[in-house]
Design a protein around this nucleic acid. Structure first.
Lengths: 364, 364
DNA sequence: GCGGCTTATAAAAACGTTTTTATAGTCTTT
DNA sequence: AAAGACTATAAAAACGTTTTTATAAGCCGC
């Protein structure tokens, strides 16, 4: 007996259900049920077993549970690798999204794991692998395309997911979104009411679902004012500063160039401002720029710009919450939330006067 | 028999070693060994079993393997949650780091999982939980403190980890770093040789190990030029634009204010430029600013700034590679790499002339 | 031609859970 | 007072691997 037990300190192995069974005198079956709050075990027994678990710092081995139940206890996030290409700033703070999701998952038994994807199509393959191999119990992804293959696949498999952005081709999936149509529309309205008539929309790739929302909002603002929309002034590209600068150069070169600009994010805005400086133009005196901001950075631009601000970490948290609820079995149709960003008015702060000037200049 | 088998399509369960054993006629033990390239099994047998595995798209269940071996097949990244606080831009593109690590892990059997931490101390607790519960086989983290509790703990446990940044209190751990001392020193030298004598160092919290490196480089540049360092012009704080702006205001209010600035990252730089505009100063005519850049964004500042550029995704990839090698048993002392960022000269492009002006102004 | 050695594979145990099935004991019901 | 229902717990099986131990066959030396 004494020869069998180690004579030094024990290897301090992690406690298991067996440990708790021996401690309390119950069987491992009862221990497991008690810890999982099964109704078949007495409250008193539960209390005793839980006390033992507490005292010894027991934590269930998720992999063993996973093996038995088939659940993975992993929540997967598909992170676009494009964020890292060309080392060009894109102004998408993915870390904030991850942070938000992670916070929502805190306290649950789910671990956050990150899978890189190159684009939506690659994302579909990764999603398929996740589903096939049981790598996760639910998936979150962003950059929703108009006809998103990930949404289509996961919907068809009835696999829990939450998208950051709506996708109209699938019926009733869970998503969290920003009211991009309203943002673009409201910004355009502000510029129109400030006297601008030639307004450019700096937009993402038109294949993104929210790109269409922005165009719709942009057009609606003109229609509301009884004007024809400036469809020729819609620039489409990636979300980098380089694209913002190039767009400005191209747009200002057309006949009857725009005097107002509605930007899609702060990286493009920064590039656009640099482009204005290239041409010796000022975003105060010569043109008006309205941005969309999720990094709170437009305040530091020259000049500080009017922006629609949406802390993206809040979106992330909502994504995480929805994913938990979706994995718990809630219907996807109930898990929809659209955030409306907050307007932070800065430049153009005397938009009406500035607009007046533009209009007069155009007439002259 | 027919009554026993389902009459519709089978549930299409994932293939297991058992499936392969039945297919090939070997035992599951042999199958397992063949797949793991054990030397005890014939090459011919291996080939047969692998062909079967290939044909049926077999992929081992990592959780079952994990249960048996104790390995988790997870690589953990400790991501500072501070990136998301106050919604203030900090200019740390953590997604790029994650992307780099993830790329390095591609093809290995390791999954990337993300754990949020509040600070280094909290990181220690999370690391301890990871080690205790076997949540991962290796850990990557950044923001190394002078006396980092995570480094101390993991070193003492001999648990594989790679730090982004050196830590001198522990002996011989694996790390990837940026030569911050050289960056700060070289930037300071440039400003000194441009005629600047009062130079400010915009630095992170002094408790970060690299903050000390920067101060050392800063001082060395003065010593090298036979000058006394401007220790009174070292500003210390977080890496936000707000801190950059506030620092500028504070530093310009002292008697004999700085004419040169060495910034720690692009968020502080952006704030500093905003602060200069607040005071009606120009980073072209009145003062000189040199930045450190990992987002390639200084090009779009007003004016575009000279910067030391280091794509952080490369660091991430190196972190991932080192972690794999560390988990494979390599000695930590061999896994050290220090990147030296590339100088991108922009403003001040006629530094010598500008410096002259500053010096003359100071004399007058 | 047979004990011992090597070789190729098989059998079985183990990892830590959860879940199904079994087993006593107690309580109803008539 | 005995059959049946219910209750609380125990025993056992299962998840899919890996690893240890066992087994049978072939070969060697003499």
């Amino acid at each position: 007996m004494t020869a069998k037990t180690a004579h030094r300190s024990a290897p301090a192995r992690r406690p298991t259900v067996k440990t708790l069974a021996e401690m309390t005198g119950y069987s491992i079956a009862t221990v497991s049920k008690a810890l999982n709050d099964s109704p078949v075990v007495t409250d008193e027994t539960k209390a005793r077993i839980r006390a033992a678990a507490e005292s010894v710092g027991y934590a269930a081995n998720p992999r063993a549970a996973s093996l038995r139940t088939g659940k993975s206890f992993q929540a997967a996030v598909l992170m676009p690798i494009s964020v890292a290409e060309g080392h060009e700033w894109h102004g998408v703070e993915y870390a904030e999204i991850l942070s938000g999701i992670s916070r929502a998952l805190e306290g649950s038994s789910y671990q956050l794991s990150v899978h890189l994807i190159r684009d939506a199509e690659d994302g579909r393959n990764v999603a398929e692998r996740i589903v096939r191999r049981g790598l996760a119990d639910g998936i979150v992804f962003s950059g929703i395309r108009r006809n998103d293959p990930r949404v289509a696949y996961l919907s068809s498999m009835d696999f829990p997911f939450v998208a950051m952005g709506h996708c109209d081709t699938a019926s009733g999936h869970a998503y969290v979104d920003i009211d991009s149509g309203w943002v673009a529309g409201d910004a355009t309205r502000r510029l129109i009411s400030g006297g601008h008539r030639r307004i450019a929309l700096i937009n993402p790739d038109p294949d993104f679902a929210y790109a269409q929302d922005r165009i719709a909002g942009f057009r609606a603002a003109f229609a509301q004012a009884g004007l024809a929309p400036c469809d020729d002034l819609i620039a489409e590209g990636d979300l980098t500063a380089r694209f913002g600068r190039e767009s400005l150069h191209r747009l200002r070169a057309v006949t009857d160039p725009p005097t107002g600009f509605v930007c899609v994010n702060e990286a493009t805005t920064l590039g656009l401002l640099a482009g204005l400086r290239d041409l010796g133009l000022s975003a105060e005196a010569d043109v008006s720029v309205i941005s969309y901001d999720d990094l709170n950075v437009s305040e530091y631009f020259a000049p500080p710009l009017t922006t629609y601000f949406q802390p993206v970490e809040e979106l992330g948290r909502c994504l995480g919450e929805f994913l938990l609820r979706r994995m718990a079995g809630e219907a996807p149709g109930d898990l929809v939330r659209v955030f409306r960003p907050r307007l932070i008015p800065r430049q153009p702060d005397r938009l009406a006067d500035a607009g007046q000037t533009h209009q007069q200049r155009r007439k002259a």
